[in-house]
Amino acid sequence: MTENTDQSKTTVSPVVAPSKFSRVLSGFLNSPFAGMTPWIVMGFINGPGRFEEAAAVAFGLSLLFVLGGHKRGSKIKFLEVFDLVYFSSMVLLAQFAAASVVDWLELWGGEMTNIALVSFAFVSILIRQPFTMQYAKESEPEEMWDNPLFIHINYMITWSWVLGFGVGAIAGFYGDYVLNDNNNFWTGWIIGLAGTIFAISFTEFYPEYAVAKEMAKAGEDAVPQSLMRLLDWVPIFIIVTGVAGLVTDSTSTTLGVIIIVVGVVIKLGMRALSPDNKKA
C-alpha cells in the first residue's frame, strides 16, 4: 500500500529593505524642503517672458510632492495646500489674465513669491502653529509634541525661513524698483540664494544644536556644535559667486578673482579655527 502525502510548501517573500534612494526621497518628502522647493524654483525661473513656465513648473512640483508624500503615507500639510492654491492661481493668471497683468507678474512675480511665503510662515507663527511643526511631528513620537524644546526648535526654524525669504524679497524689490533690473546678478540671484541657503543650513543645524545645549544645561555629557558649523556653506558660496560672475560676465575679471580669493581665504581660516582641527 502506497501512501501519498501532500506536503505544503510555504513561500516566504524576503523582506526587501528600502534602497538608499528611497530613504533619501522619503526624508525629503517628509521635510519642509519639499514644500519650499516650488517657491525656490518659481523665484529663480521667473523673469521677462518666463512667468508662464515658472508658474507651471512650480505648480507641477507642488502637485508631484503632494502625491508623492501621500503615497508614502504622509499627511497633507498646510504648506502643501498653500503651494497648490497659490501656484494654480498663478497658472490661471498666466493663461487668462491680460497681457499687461502678465507683464507686471513677470516683473514682480519673484517678490510676490517671496512675500507670499514670508506671510504664510509669519502667520503660522502668529497663530502659534509654526508650519515646520507638521513635518517634525512625522519624525518624532507623539509624547514629544508638547515638549517645550520641540516647540521652540520649530519656532526658530520657521523664523529662519521668514528671514531667508524676507531677504530675497527685499533684495528683489531693490533690484526691480531702484535699479530697474529684475535680472540683476546680485539682487535677483546671489542675495536671494544666500538667504535661502542660510534657512536650509539653519534647518539642518539647529535641532541637534538646541538638544545638545539643553542637555548640557541639565548637566548631561553633551557638547553643542560650534556655531561656526552654521556658516560652513559661506566660503564655497562666495567662491561659486565669483566663478558665476566671471562666467556670466556679471562682474569684472578683477572683481570676480577677488571674490574667489576671499572665499578661499575664508575657507582656510574657518578650517584653521575648526574645533576638530584644534583637537588634532
Rank of each mutant, 00 (worst) to 15 (best):
V234D: 09
V123Q: 04
F82P: 05
L230V: 05
S274V: 00
L255I: 09
Y206S: 10
G245V: 09
A194L: 02
P141V: 11
A171I: 01
G47V: 01
A280T: 03
W104M: 11
W108F: 13
I259S: 04
M42V: 00
A199H: 02
L227G: 11
E214V: 08
N46D: 06
N114E: 10
F33C: 04
F44W: 03
T5M: 13
N184A: 11
L64W: 00
D221E: 05
M228K: 09
T254A: 11
L149F: 06
M215C: 05
I76Y: 10
D181I: 04
I200V: 14
V57S: 06
E140N: 14
H152K: 15
I127K: 08
A169W: 01
V24A: 12
L255M: 08
V57C: 06
I115N: 09
P14N: 06
L268Y: 08
V240I: 07
A194P: 02
D276Y: 15
T37S: 12
V243L: 14
K213N: 04
N147D: 15
V178Y: 13
T11K: 08
T2G: 07
V257P: 04
W108N: 12
P18L: 10
M228A: 11
H70F: 14
A136S: 14
I157W: 10
T253L: 13
R50I: 02
P141F: 12
E80C: 10
G242N: 03
M112F: 15
F237M: 00
G175S: 04
D103G: 13
S26L: 08
I190M: 03
S124W: 05
S119T: 15
S26A: 13
P18G: 13
V12S: 08
V12Q: 08
R128V: 12
V162W: 08
S88H: 03
L246Y: 05
S119Y: 10
F21T: 14
V15D: 07
V257D: 03
V262T: 11
G47N: 02
G110R: 02
G69E: 06
M42A: 08
I258E: 11
V81C: 14
G110H: 03
W161R: 00
V223W: 09
V262C: 13
M270E: 12
V85S: 11
W159S: 06
A194N: 01
T251E: 01
V12R: 08
E142Y: 11
S13D: 15
L63F: 14
W233Y: 07
M270D: 07
W108H: 14
A222S: 12
G43Q: 03
M1P: 00
G242L: 04
D6S: 12
D276K: 15
A99W: 06
D146Y: 07
P141T: 07
V16Q: 13
T251N: 00
T5C: 05
R23K: 12
A199F: 01
S201Q: 12
I125F: 14
G168H: 00
I258V: 15
S252N: 08
L193T: 01
I266T: 08
H152A: 15
I266H: 02
F202T: 03
T248C: 03
I258H: 06
V211C: 03
L79D: 14
S13A: 15
Q129C: 07
S119I: 15
S252K: 04
S274R: 06
A116I: 10
